[in-house]
Design a protein around this nucleic acid. Sequence first.
DNA 1: TTTAATAGTGTAAAAAATACACACTATATT
DNA 2: AATATAGTGTGTATTTTTTACACTATTAAA
Lengths: 220, 220
Amino acid sequence: MQSHFTIDCVIYSFTEGKLHVLLNERNEYPYKDWWALPGFFVEKDEEMEDAVKRILYEHTGLKDIFMEQLGAFAGVKRHPQGRIMTVAFSTIVKYNDVKSKIKPTTTYMRQARWFPIDQLPELAFDHAQIIQKSLQNLKYSLNYSTAIYELLPEKFTLTQLQQVYEAVLGSALDKRNFRKKIANTGFLKELPEVQKGVSYRAARLYKFDRRKFQKQLGID
Amino acid sequence: MQSHFTIDCVIYSFTEGKLHVLLNERNEYPYKDWWALPGFFVEKDEEMEDAVKRILYEHTGLKDIFMEQLGAFAGVKRHPQGRIMTVAFSTIVKYNDVKSKIKPTTTYMRQARWFPIDQLPELAFDHAQIIQKSLQNLKYSLNYSTAIYELLPEKFTLTQLQQVYEAVLGSALDKRNFRKKIANTGFLKELPEVQKGVSYRAARLYKFDRRKFQKQLGID
DNA sequence: TTTAATAGTGTAAAAAATACACACTATATT
DNA sequence: AATATAGTGTGTATTTTTTACACTATTAAA
């Protein structure tokens, strides 16, 4: 007898100064008409990571995904139809990379929508709990991981980066101290370009230098 | 159809200046005669945490256990008889609380033994990987959790505490700086007692003050 | 040219982390 | 009683990191 379980993805993106999570409106029981994390059963011979990629591709059209396992949720009563375990993943996409409007590709969901992290609807199953834990995790990993940069477009301003930090931490940061700290890491490469299309002083653009980040980790 | 999966426990204790892990020698296929993490199938209507308690009780006679979920391991090829998922937990017991010599209570294992973390035998399944991740996790949580104190007897000396830190981190710490740091946390209560039965100056005993720890966390 | 909106910058003070060495004490041994 | 042994317990100076804090510069639009 083999394992029979689902994957649920907390899919983050950042837009309009806020951290967002992608949710599905379910179109079947249980929890019909409720909002829920995108997820599905894992195929018999499918690696979990491939299932995550599959779900992400269906929802965002993207293939290279940042993902991190959050853990197993297997409460006996989490699913009305008997215990069905889910393994939750945190995933991150760049909002601007998500091509089309998201369309339901299955009959299981009615629609998909981005919700600001501080304005989530009521959620099916134990998904509220999963999101809470995922966010907690994201906070902790701010300092150790490249996650934060997955939320931004390839070229971004320091203000945008700070906004992402603030959105994840849920608190404001001092601009000068923040910039000093970021400068000290040395992970950013200053570009010879500035923001376009703004009606005020254009900000310089930066990009995350993955090579330098790797090196830094190596030394530690 | 319900989930069918196992729990595996990384059971830590600290003795003789070293971090130890409890392993079973398997007495059935697959991996007969190999060393493995204590674990078992989770019953149909059993919460995972209860399964962990059950396994810990069988192995150590203890009921109040520190535990933390490490995550799901579900590689399609991890189990020779088809994918069987395991959810791994890190657990900690105080070595001196483990009452009797550990006896196998099932036919599935031949013996159980504590291994120093740096002298593990070759391990069944993906258990080496699980232990590695668990240890990583333990390191990270040194600063955020009470885990470290679960490894020590109720009353302990500062030198013992330092040894635990060193065992987990795998590196030496400066005695004076360590004591300064610990003193700053304010989590320890100095007892009016000293060590007994040593042939040198007896060290003062301390105990972990859980109340103060909670308060500290509350403020942060 | 003025206004509105955001970009960009430095310094001083406080706190935390690090490096470092010797005297003390309880017991066991002679 | 003297001494050897083995681990306990302590302070200070230096460096690094974190925090607090406010004004000028630039651009586009009105």
